[in-house]
Design a protein around this nucleic acid. Sequence first.
DNA 1: TGTTTGACAAGCA
DNA 2: CTGCTTGCCAAAC
Length: 105
Amino acid sequence: MSKHSNLHRDNIFQLVRRVPRGCVITYKDIAQAIGHPKAARAIGKILNSNSKLVLIPCHRVVRSDGGLGGYKLGVTKKAALLRKEGVKITNNKINLKRYKVRTPF
DNA sequence: TGTTTGACAAGCA
DNA sequence: CTGCTTGCCAAAC
């Protein structure tokens, strides 16, 4: 059950899985990490296929402008999860300077 | 195999 | 600051 293009997909999921509680990462950061700086748009599409929402905290993936982005179960749910982890959201925006992970990639 | 679709991003008016 | 346009990439049609 291994298709070749799943390599990136798995990279993405494993990367997101490392994002600690109370922190966020951007779609763009992920794109750069897998070697496709311009593929941010495709990241969301791939995360959308994430079936293991509990194992992979994709609610911690947000837009590079601090916007929430989307979520399989709706942005409302996403915002609730983030707030529960201590991430403050003001006017539907997140302070990346404060919550974004320090790139250990 | 060509076209359309999105959980994006950057530039510009 | 807000809204529109163009570029990108993987997956679904």
